[in-house]
Design a protein around this nucleic acid. Structure first.
Lengths: 357, 357
DNA sequence: TCGATCTCTGAGAACGATTACACAGCCAGT
DNA sequence: ACTGGCTGTGTAATCGTTCTCAGAGATCGA
């Protein structure tokens, strides 16, 4: 590799001058400037970002740890973060925790060791032992989607209470008595909050889901299938399932299909987290949509603000209910029943990206 | 931040000794060893990977540039690459080219500047101008999924000719006369190869798609919808559409639904690239499945081999046809027609991850 | 003509690690 | 007691940048 010294020799100047030219300092003459640039060009010189970072105490890099890269929810967030970061001249290094606290801890350490300028974490669990490590290292931290015990870091999250309240009301209005819930892990904030909000909403309506109708999954496909299987094997099985995450929703759907159960005739289904293909199912799936792009953007901005020495406030975006008929919602059911086959959806499917803008 | 010097002072030794302890050299006494470790522990010292990399000329990092992070196909690949890399003690830095050659070039440069030990690229286009830059820098390069003009780098790709031949045969056998193709961009190897292979297969069967029935998209959702719209607006519209990528397939599906067209009654659909939700549609979508996890793993291994100084051969995996009935395939259609509603799929949906193992 | 001021450039010290080399003890063999 | 071979440790160079500081000319006013 050619270094700055090579360029300096070739141009007949010192490395200091080369550095000044490279960083756009005022000092160098137009003449030396062109000489240096010519040398850089001839040698195909590219500065070593490692050395630069070591000297500058800044890597222009953000670290992002997502709970599960295969979850399109996080993939979209990752993409949004990256867009925002690039717009500010930052690069993003990803880590995939795979919903595992240990793997997450490993990545936190790896990224701290590489001296990222800031860390964005979608925590795998409530356990916040790792936060102390980050705080000690002095690297700015922003939490995304989920919170963590004993952390004072800014949080960017989604409030689904209102949407869940609407969903509960809609289910009750449709006449559902036995509501099955495939909840997220009890040791994640989103897992608990969604379940709590939904339970509270039902309670307001005078209903209370039976304990055996509430199962916890792990935000992944297989657990959704397992939970659906368990729920549908009960003597008094639910008339509708609410999956608190798109992957568990996918698993539940697979399980229902595998059992030959028809949605919503045999059992209704609602899912937390919209995905582009949900409107394409028959019936289209009723979902609670989260503003993923906005989340990623907001998180990146908060982190950049933190890096700039500001004190960004917590961000709380709101999810919203998108009723599509998979719970046998009034009006949609009857309309649907009149068409013999797989019919066209009534409205053009709304894309997630459109919703976010 | 505490540095090695701090540790050395605290333990009453030199930085050399600290380094030796850290890197497991034989030299230090058990006594000094424990003293150093104690100091490290008390100070919460973490080595600076930047300084280490600068000195060692190795970052233990692989760069991965994907064409589009939002495409689940690439998300799965990214995940597989990361798993394999981690197993060998490497970290992965991602870049998202967004199907843009310029953005890809920017990322190539950024990653080279950060001195990644190796580069894995899913090229956005055929243009291989950037390859020279990588070669000059001496950083090992492996191409993934798509090839590039004038490159001698090892390639990991998927051969879909046999699967496409089977698909063509199946479509012809089902009686499809007018076959519409939503092809990938002509300036990508996969875009061309899939179209060529499919056309050749049809030619073998004595058919030849009409020129106006072949449209090129850009491997993204909107282009699939636009192409489907154009094709279905023709006076002699196709009886079946073949989308050469899962996102274009998604777009096409949305468009068909929006127009109130029923698959496969009004028009058949087949898609290149399986996704977990394809089996859940009614009818389940016939696809050509690619071994994504195997691709990512193979690519990472090839790159690591290259870094180790070996000369890995090109890898060519094979895609396979999964017939599900969305093209009105014989046997499936009749069975389907007998059930009035959204029916259960006939076999348990096969998950992508199972297929890859 | 002589400072004073201003502009440009270079020498060299960081940044935080690794490691070649030297050296100080120690023990064994003569 | 002296040599020679170990063993364990420290000194200092090095990686490729940035940046402080100081010096070399040039310009200018008195």
């Amino acid at each position: 590799m050619t270094t700055m010294k090579d360029v300096a020799n070739r141009a007949g100047v010192s490395t200091a001058t080369v550095s000044r030219v490279l960083n756009g300092h005022a000092a160098p003459t137009e003449q030396t400037r062109t000489r240096v640039l010519a040398a850089i060009d001839e040698l195909g010189y590219r500065p070593n970002a490692l050395a630069r970072s070591l000297r500058m105490h800044s890597t222009k890099t953000l670290g992002l740890i997502v709970s599960d890269l295969l979850n399109p929810f996080f993939a979209e967030i990752a993409r949004a973060v990256e867009d925002e970061a690039r717009a500010h001249g930052y690069c993003v290094v990803f880590g995939n925790a795979d919903e595992s606290a240990e793997q997450q801890a490993t990545y936190v350490r790896t990224l701290l060791d590489r001296r990222v300028d800031g860390l964005l974490v979608c925590p795998a669990t409530d356990d916040g032992g790792w936060v102390a490590e980050v705080t000690e290292s002095g690297v700015p931290l922003v939490l995304l989607d989920r919170t963590v015990d004993g952390s004072t870091a800014p949080v960017v999250r989604v409030d689904g209470t209102e949407a869940l309240r609407e969903l509960a009301a809609s289910l009750v209005a449709t006449g559902h008595e036995r509501i099955g819930v495939i909840a997220g892990p009890a040791n994640t904030s989103t897992g608990r909050e969604r379940l709590d909000a939904f339970s509270a909403a039902l309670a307001e309506l005078g209903r209370r889901p039976r304990p055996e109708h509430v199962l916890h999954g792990d935000f992944r496909r297989a657990s959704g299938a397992a939970a659906a299987a368990a729920l549908m094997s009960l003597p008094e099985r639910p008339s509708v399932l609410v999956a608190m995450d798109n992957l568990m929703g996918l698993g539940a759907l697979e399980e229902l299909r595998g059992r030959g159960l028809v949605v919503p005739r045999d059992v209704g289904l609602a899912v937390y987290d919209d995905q582009p293909w949900f409107p394409l199912l028959d019936p289209p799936i009723t979902v609670i949509a989260q503003p993923t792009v906005a989340m990623g953007g907001a998180a990146a901005r908060s982190l950049l603000a933190l890096i700039a020495g500001e004190q960004p406030a917590d961000v709380r975006l709101t999810a919203r209910l998108v009723s599509r008929g998979s719970c046998g919602e009034a009006g949609l059911v009857s309309e649907r029943a009149s068409s013999p086959f797989n019919t066209a959806v009534r409205t053009r499917p709304t894309s997630v990206s459109e919703e976010d803008s």
